[in-house]
């Protein structure tokens, strides 16, 4: 192989490698590593769904982002769809260190297959920019971040 051929080969490979790059939102790429720094100011949603059909959702929101009245309107926060109707049982709201903690309790009943849980915090409360969610179902658990700046959820935090 001549030097010219080697140079052409290297150039072609470099071009091909260069073609493969895709621009990504830098915030979303690095956020899982820096999330800890502002974790205390982020809204969290912790959902636990048990085999018995009990669904408990705990929402913690800084008081600067939402009012107690808004959290009281449970339809604006949480909707549950199952094969048969689920019943809203209770809601408890407390406040501690500038954060509202709202606990929603929904009963779907044993054998009533849960289909969809809609959490509308980002849709109804424009001051919430980011949610950290912990969801636990009988089959699996997931922990992720949702940000208005990213197209998809950020896993593996």
């Amino acid at each position: 192989m001549t030097i010219k051929q080697v140079m052409i080969f290297i150039s072609v490979i470099s071009l091909l490698v260069g073609c493969g790059e895709k621009s990504e939102n830098k915030f979303c790429t690095v956020h899982r590593d820096v999330h800890q720094q502002h974790q205390n100011n982020v809204t969290t949603v912790d959902v636990s769904y048990l085999e018995t059909g009990r669904l408990l959702a705990t929402v913690e929101v800084p008081i600067t982002q939402i009012s107690e009245t808004e959290l009281n309107q449970h339809d604006k926060v949480l909707r549950v769809d199952a094969e048969q109707e689920c019943y809203f049982v209770s809601l408890n709201i407390g406040e501690q260190k500038g954060v509202f903690e709202a606990k929603y309790h929904v009963e779907c009943g044993m054998g009533n297959r849960l289909k969809k849980v809609t959490i509308s915090l980002l849709e109804n409360f424009s001051q919430i920019d980011e949610i950290e969610a912990f969801i636990d179902t009988p089959a699996s658990k997931k922990h992720f971040i949702l940000s208005r700046q990213c197209d998809g959820p950020i896993f593996n935090i």
Partner: peptide
Amino acid sequence: IVFAFPANEQHFDI
């Protein structure tokens, strides 16, 4: 089971 998080511009389904 779908956990939906609608937002105004995006829609996250887990």
